[in-house]
Each structure stands twice: as C-alpha cells, then as structure tokens.
Design a protein around this nucleic acid. Structure first.
Length: 219
DNA sequence: AAAACGGGGGC
DNA sequence: GCCCCAGTTTT
C-alpha cells in the first residue's frame, strides 16, 4: 500500500464496519460516557480473550461495582467468579484489586491520562495504556493490538515484527487525524473480515491496495 | 492436535 | 530475547 492510499483505505473500513457490532471496549465507553476506569478494566479483561467472553465478564463485574472504591471491596473469589472464563482470570482478579488500590492511593481514585503513569499500574502495558488515553480521554495516541499490527503489515503500510515496532512506525507515518480512531476501525475489521487465517479477501473493498503480506490462503 | 483469543510481566 | 500465565472455541 502506498502512503497516500491510507486515506481511501480508512474511509472504506469506516463504512464497512458499520455492518458489525462494536467491540466490547467501545460498547463500554459509549454506555458509560467514556468512563476511563471502565474502559481500563474492560480492556484488561479483553487481553487474550474473545470479544464475546469479555462482554459477558464485563457485564457481570460491572453489575457488582463500577468505581475503584467499590470494586476494591470485592474479594478475589468474587471477582474471579464474575470474570471467569476470560484468559488468565486469576492473574487479572489480583491485578484488578491492585489497580483499584493504587488508583485510590496515588490518584485519588482517578485514572491517569498519561501513558507513563498508566504503565506503572499492574497489568497495564502499551496497548491498554493507549486505549485508555484514546478511548477514555479522546487524547492523541496509537493503540496497537494484534489486529492493528496484523492489518497494517498485511496492507504493506508498515513492515514490522512486533506491535511495539508497529506503534513506533505508525507514529512516524500515520496522519495524526487518524491516531485516536485507527484502533477502533481496524479491530472490528480484523474480527469480522481481515482475520488472521483465511481472511475474506473476496469481500474486501480495499483489496486493490492491499499487499496481502503473509496471506497464504484467503476466501 | 493446534491455533487463536483486541498482552503483559519477570527474568 | 524467552518463558509463563489459562481456559474456551475454532480449524
């Protein structure tokens, strides 16, 4: 994909994803008025976990508590039962308690809006931190998850080996006006059409610009 | 049986 | 850089 073709590609993806349901974090953000705390927790739950599983777990957990102060009072077994069976549910239950405690202790129960501060919280890496900044606070950031990494490379827009490298490359190349929403666009596209294995290239309206890097079989 | 799931942390 | 975390669904 040529640099100038990114505009048409993004426009097309934006139109196409309207056919599919929002990813969980987007739903949580919309329903809560972009509550950064709920964005943070639902993002944590989503790591290595299918969207549908994350949605059910978030619903159960948020029925019990929606603020750091109240969520901190939940016991580990209660949290584990609520979020099961998301990936690494035991680790995440502990991290949720620790996150709540640290938010109350260090930030008066508020979620930081700076990447560096978010990265000090347990279980929060670059993907989660950038998602909180972009979705929760609508501030400039590039959230690179496995979908953004895979599709950016498949298009040939960047040539990188890891999500962290992809973030660096996109910060240098992707026009700033797309930073905040790039992840929101590519995640549903990756979930429903541009999947890891046998993507639906015959239905893809940007196949003309796509280099199909790493695509061996498609449908 | 293996890959995939919107990674992160400890070493 | 390598390995671990963890259970469910899809191929």
């Amino acid at each position: 994909m040529q640099a100038q073709e990114i505009h048409a590609a993004i426009r097309t993806v934006k139109r196409e994803i309207a056919r599919w349901p929002d990813p969980v974090v987007g739903v949580v953000a919309r329903q809560s008025g972009r509550d950064p705390f709920l964005v943070l927790i639902s993002c944590l739950l989503s790591l290595r976990t299918k969207d549908k599983t994350t949605a059910e777990a978030s619903e159960r957990l948020f029925a019990l508590a929606v603020t750091p102060a109240t969520m901190q009072t939940l016991t580990i077994p209660i949290i584990e039962r609520a979020i099961y069976p998301v990936g690494f549910y035991r680790t995440k239950a502990k991290q949720i308690q620790q996150i709540c405690a640290q938010l109350l202790e260090r930030y008066q129960g508020r979620v930081p809006d700076k990447i560096d501060e978010l990265l000090t919280l347990p279980g929060v890496g670059r993907k989660t931190a950038n998602l909180v900044v972009t979705v929760g606070y609508e501030k400039p950031g590039i959230c690179v998850d496995i979908h953004v990494h895979r599709i950016s490379n498949r298009w040939g827009y960047v040539k990188t080996k890891s999500p962290d490298e992809t973030e660096t490359a996109l910060r240098a190349k992707l026009p700033r006006k797309y930073w905040i929403t790039f992840n929101d666009l590519l995640v549903p596209y990756g979930q429903h059409l541009c999947q890891p294995v046998s993507p639906l290239c015959s239905q893809c309206k940007i196949a003309a610009y796509c280099d199909r890097v790493g695509v061996t079989k498609s449908r």
